[in-house]
């Protein structure tokens, strides 16, 4: 269960380039829901995601993940509750560390990191078992440096790391956008399998309406920093991509969606 209550984030407040990125948004994601968030560039969806992950703090409002209020908890502490996959496939892993070392970091997320050896036989076996699920042959390359892998492989590993310890909230930030079509489809397939199997509460930001409609759970459309549409599973069941496209265009409205200036500054 994730609760967002009236959060607002303004960039460059009081300056000429003031932008209200997120404007008094409230959103509740029930336990186990797979929510898809779409919206044009500058609609505020990435800011909302960054507010949830703790990369940014809101100016006002409240964020609760599970039983914990995390509104102003720094990202590295909040990470105990949250798994995150970035848009950039290079962002989620450490290139200079081996595959197993990256997983060792994920295995200690939210725990004390002391001076004990990071890896042991039991953990290695677990990593091998999980990697075998990807069917990419990576389970035989535990000691390869991650920097040697392809973008698709790295993104699959990041996803697996994000769910290695069951997160209370999984954040997917356009995580297939930078991949080639085949890798993108494969990572999307793995995503749905993992989310469904573990029943994870998930928020996925995407520009890909086909991917959005693969998850007919709930789709939220953002525009100008606010929620413009909130589409439930019953409506989504009847929708095709053109229908969602029409709704999307309608919700973005006229005018420039790239730069939305607040009325307060004028």
């Amino acid at each position: 269960m994730v609760k967002i209550r009236g959060i607002t984030k303004v960039f460059h407040p009081g300056e000429v380039n003031e932008v209200v990125a997120v404007n008094d948004v409230s959103l509740e994601i029930p336990e186990g829901q797979f929510l898809v968030l779409i919206g044009g560039n500058g609609s505020g969806k990435s800011t909302l995601l960054n507010l949830l992950s703790g990369s940014l703090f809101p100016d006002s409002g409240k964020i609760v993940v599970g039983d914990a209020e995390v509104t102003r908890v720094p990202e590295y502490e909040r990470a105990a509750l949250i798994g995150r996959v970035f848009q950039d496939p290079l962002m989620g892993t450490s290139a200079g560390l081996t595959i197993e070392e990256n997983f060792a970091l994920a295995a200690t997320r939210g725990k004390f990191r002391g001076l004990g050896p990071a890896l042991n036989k039991q953990l290695r076996n677990e990593i091998r078992d999980r990697l075998a699920l990807l069917a990419m042959g990576l389970e035989n390359r535990l000691t390869s440096k991650v920097g040697l892998l392809s973008g698709g492989q790295r993104q699959a590993i990041t996803l697996l790391m994000a769910v290695f310890q069951r997160p209370r909230l999984l954040l997917l930030d356009e995580h297939t956008a930078a991949l080639d079509p085949r890798a993108s489809r494969e990572v999307m397939r793995l995503t749905t399998v993992m989310v469904r199997e573990q029943g994870l509460t998930t928020l996925m930001v995407t520009h890909n309406l086909t991917h959005a409609l693969e998850i007919r759970d709930r789709t939220v459309v953002m525009s100008h920093g606010s929620i413009a549409r909130d589409i439930g599973s019953q409506d989504l069941a009847k929708m095709q991509v053109p229908d969602l496209m029409a709704l999307f265009l309608e919700s973005q409205g006229e005018g420039n969606t790239l730069l939305h200036r607040s009325t307060a500054s004028s």
């Binding site: 992950s53 990369s55 720094p74 990202e75 590295y76 502490e77 990470a79 105990a80 995150r84 970035f86 290079l90 962002m91 989620g92 892993t93 450490s94 290139a95 200079g96 560390l97 070392e101 990256n102 060792a104 970091l105 994920a106 200690t108 997320r109 939210g110 725990k111 990191r113 002391g114 001076l115 004990g116 050896p117 990071a118 890896l119 790391m161």
Partner: peptide, 28 residues
């Protein structure tokens, strides 16, 4: 030895990719 401990791994990853380290719950 130190660079292969849990703390040491986080330290090595910090030089490599600080954003990832924060997302994995370690204060860079």
């Amino acid at each position: 030895r130190f660079l292969h401990t849990s703390f040491g791994l986080a330290l090595r990853a910090t030089g490599d990719n600080p954003r990832m380290v924060a997302a994995q719950g370690f204060n860079t």
